[in-house]
Amino acid sequence: MALIQQDEAWFMRRLVNLHKMKRPVGKILVNPDLCKDCRFCIEFCPNNVLEESKDVNFKGYHYPVVKPGKELDCVACRMCEKICPEFAITIISEEYITYDKYYGVSRHAHGG
């Protein structure tokens, strides 16, 4: 129920001025060698952007990577950066994305 309502709300907004509304889109920088796979960044990201890598770093730890299809989902809130005990993950917030682009890509990713 709730989900439908939320979807409707988004739908309304999309109709209005999607091409004008923009938000930051973060570029996620990970230094794999510093990461110890505590998963704080993965678990506390409000948008569920991250997941563990398949690869391991030189110490044998998995490190965070962006989930496939979530490339534009980082809102640069910096929660991951702040909670990382290792200086391993940081965010560059220089770019913005408009919602029409975001949903376009999003739909494409999910529909494909």
């Binding site: 230094n31 060698d33 796979d37 998963r39 730890y61 290792e86 940081t90």
Partner: peptide
Amino acid sequence: VELPKAYDDIKDLIRIDRLPHIWCPG
């Protein structure tokens, strides 16, 4: 080891040559 740009403000305060630190994951 490179201290990411986001830490430029405190890079003078961290002994980067000692990272990664000894503490456990988590």
